[in-house]
Amino acid sequence: MPILSCENLTKQYGAVTALDGVNLNIEPGRIVGLLGPNGSGKTTLIKIANGLLTPTSGRILINGMEPGVETKKLVSFLPERTYLANWMSVKQLLNYFQDFYEDFDRERAATMLAHLNIPETQRIRQMSKGTREKVQLILVMSRRARLYLLDEPIGGVDPAARDYILNTIIGNYDPQAAVVISTHLIADVEPLLDEVVFIQNGHILRHTPVDQIREEMGKSVDALFREEFRCL
């Protein structure tokens, strides 16, 4: 059974159609790139999967269930923006995640934080932007979730932080779980991906294994993306 499944998923904001009849299945064990230009519907799709938005029509199922309390136990979400309260210390955040998420592996998070020399007493407001993003990612990836939804995890961070983030995603790979990475920085994430989903104007243009693109078309996903979205 797919861990994420969209059936004719449509979302309209007033007159604007953000998602238009999207059909998509994502299987466990896969790392999937959700690729598209800004405003193509990536974030809308991720927000609906998290229950932060309700679809206009069609439906989305997480492990066979509509988004709700039960699916939130299975989904670990990294939003595009910093959402951690500034005043909180690392330790308080660990307590918070441990309190609310049964699948939170505190030891794993503590190990990763120790590797970065981030003391648990440090507060979010004392951190640089790059460190904040890393802490957020550590918290999100330390859950033993079934579906990780990462919205622009490497946007706006320096190359060293980018490598760290990508390595954290690889290091936490779990064959039982799917990872969806939305980004427009394709060259950086391409070696991580099993499959890519191209999305434009709320339509899925393609959903293909990366190997197939390279084998059949003899080009990288990045090159293909540039071609298919050239006119934009």
Partner: peptide, 17 residues
Amino acid sequence: KSVHGDEGYLTHTLPVG
């Protein structure tokens, strides 16, 4: 802030109704 602001991303992804 916590329900309708940026922190809402955390609040509303907790497994609570």
